[in-house]
Design a protein around this nucleic acid. Structure first.
Lengths: 218, 218
DNA sequence: TAGATTGTTAATCGATTAACAATC
DNA sequence: TAGATTGTTAATCGATTAACAATC
């Protein structure tokens, strides 16, 4: 059976649907129409129906969507019904922030270990997880079937470390370093470039200020 | 003069151009053609030329682009030639990670203060910046002409705090809380939803595993 | 001048929205 | 059955790529 390719734009929206459905579920809402969800999420109802239909007919004519069912199904699509073993490489504030965010575990991302080069951090624990030294990395990845590494180290060391991680068997990298990683095609990379995010905000502030200036001129 | 609207897709790419040009500059490269940049950045040369031409003719036929000049110009477009006063609201690991990231200051984002509700953090400093209590917020924002607030608090308190920040005069929010903020139209919001990023990675891992399974069946 | 490479128009591709028949 | 709302096709819109004349 040929699976049709789902566009990146759709994938990008899925987690947001998941979040809204989770919140609806918590507030006890049983069913919702694409129209209601549309006004809550500020996307078109048409887009919601199109997006969901990429994965199958989760709704019912005349009824809408069952919130709990849809939530579960999107969870499955996103792979949240399975556990993923994660390590954090870089035990600075950012690494520790991720380690401390308990909600990830709830979604099946199990943080198995934290690694750093700084010997002063050796043995320190974050949320019960011990910080280890890089020389344990290889064995640890193998022993713990680690799939995902969150890379929270400075960009100067990131490329080198990423290659090491891949060599040791990591399949996916959640990259917080401000650089693009060049890795084999079968390694998945998700970039979180905070500086780029901040620059976009800066662009919009600048543009907005200019607009207001122009308005005043007229 | 009517400014033509620049699409979000273009804006999203600008910071990445900026990063690559900065690196080229550091390695002493003086000029670059759209074709060379294309192969480095893995986008089409056509897209590079289109993107840049939204803002003016920065290149020269037969020569290409002057790296330093282009870098400066994109910096101006992104508003990095001006300083922006920033506060961080939420002095947890994430807030501290941002405070500690010195490169932001280099780009003109001046971290003026850090705020938290936890009295045990009062007076503690991060990179020389004092952590203050929320009751100082209003006065501080006014005294320091704060434009941007990085919101690094749990989602349960985020909406309320965002409204407070806006009331006190903040114009833009860099939102790390896992929720969407509903604020007046003239307030700029840039979301960093880490959990969504991780779910996209999870989706791709899941899909990739399925693909390999299918291949083995055939 | 010849060669290189941009700026820009035109063609293509893909994503979003609108519309409505199918169906609960 | 009548009303509601999906699933899905068709129309529109926007973004990307290709092509090439302009020009350094």
């Amino acid at each position: 059976m040929e699976e049709k390719e789902i566009s990146k734009a759709v994938i990008k929206r899925l987690p947001r649907y998941y979040r809204y459905l989770g919140e609806l579920m918590e507030s006890g809402v049983e069913r919702i129409s694409s129209n209601e969800l549309s006004s809550k999420m500020k996307v078109t109802a048409s887009q919601i129906r199109q997006d969901l239909n990429n994965f199958g007919g989760f709704g019912q004519q005349g009824y809408g969507y069952n919130v709990k069912h849809l939530y579960t199904e999107i969870g499955k699509i996103l792979g949240l019904d399975k556990n993923h073993n994660v390590i954090i490489v870089g035990a600075g504030n950012l690494g520790q922030a991720i380690a401390n965010y308990g909600a990830f575990e709830k979604r099946g991302f199990i943080i198995k270990g934290i690694f750093d080069v700084n010997p002063r951090l050796q043995g320190v624990t974050v949320r019960g997880i011990e910080i280890r030294m890089i020389d344990e990395l290889e064995q640890f990845i193998k022993d713990n079937n680690v799939q995902i590494a969150a890379l929270t180290i400075p960009k100067t060391k990131a490329a080198e470390m990423a290659e090491l991680l891949v060599k040791y068997g990591v399949k996916a990298i959640w990259n917080f370093a401000h650089t693009d990683l060049n890795l084999p095609d079968d390694i998945l990379i998700e970039n979180v470039h905070l500086s780029e995010s901040l620059m976009r905000l800066s662009y919009n502030i600048t543009r907005y200020e200019k607009e207001r200036l122009n308005e005043n001129d007229n």
